[in-house]
Simulated scan of single mutants.
Amino acid sequence: MKNWLFLAVAICGEVIATSALKSSDGFTKLMPSIVVVSGYAIAFYFLALALKSIPVGIAYAVWAGLGIVLVAAIGWLLYGQKLDLWAFVGIGLIISGVAVLNLLSKVSAHG
C-alpha cells in the first residue's frame, strides 16, 4: 500500500509542476519556475520509489491518466480553459480506464 501512496505523491508533484508551467512564463518568472523544477523532482523521486513494486506499465498508466484529468481540471478551474462535452466524455473514459486497471486487472500489483 505504501507504494501506491508514493505514486499518489508523484502524481501530485507532477500535476503541481505542470500547472505551474503556465505561470512560469517560459521559465522567465523565478518562483513559478522553482515550483516547476521542485514539483518534477518530487514527482520522479516518488515515481521511482513506487516502481519498486508497482509494474511500470500500470504505474505509468495511472500516472498519465490521473495527471491528464487533474491538469485538465486545474486548467478549467484556475485558467478558465474551456472544456466541451467531448472533453468531459474523454476525461470520463480516462478515469474509467484507470479504474479498470486498478480494480479488475490481474496485472496490477496490489500491495
Rank of each mutant, 00 (worst) to 15 (best):
M1I: 13
K2F: 15
N3T: 14
W4Y: 14
L5A: 15
F6Y: 15
L7H: 08
L7E: 10
A8K: 06
A8L: 14
A8H: 06
A8I: 12
A10K: 05
A10V: 10
C12R: 00
C12W: 02
V15A: 02
V15W: 06
I16L: 13
I16H: 05
A17K: 01
A17C: 04
A17P: 03
A17D: 04
S19D: 06
S19C: 01
L21A: 05
L21I: 12
L21Q: 09
S23P: 01
S23D: 11
S23F: 07
S23A: 15
G26H: 10
F27T: 00
F27W: 11
K29I: 05
L30D: 06
M31C: 08
P32W: 01
P32K: 02
P32A: 06
V36W: 00
G39I: 03
Y40G: 08
Y40K: 03
Y40N: 05
A41K: 08
I42K: 01
A43M: 07
F44V: 11
Y45T: 15
Y45F: 15
Y45N: 12
F46D: 10
L47G: 04
L47W: 04
A48Q: 13
L49G: 13
L49A: 14
L49Q: 15
L49E: 15
L49D: 13
A50C: 09
A50Y: 13
L51V: 13
K52D: 15
K52R: 15
S53Y: 03
S53A: 14
P55E: 14
G57N: 09
G57R: 10
G57M: 11
I58K: 10
A59P: 06
A59Q: 06
A61G: 15
V62Y: 14
V62H: 12
W63P: 01
A64S: 15
A64T: 13
L66P: 08
G67T: 07
I68A: 10
I68W: 04
V69G: 02
V69T: 09
V71Q: 01
A72M: 07
A72E: 03
I74N: 00
W76V: 05
L77D: 07
L78M: 08
G80W: 01
K82M: 04
L83V: 02
L83E: 02
D84N: 12
D84S: 06
W86T: 04
F88L: 03
G90W: 00
I91K: 00
I91M: 08
G92S: 06
L93S: 03
L93V: 12
L93W: 07
I94V: 13
I95H: 01
S96C: 14
A99S: 11
A99M: 12
L101H: 05
N102H: 11
N102V: 08
L104I: 13
L104E: 08
K106P: 05
K106W: 07
S108W: 07
H110I: 04
G111K: 11
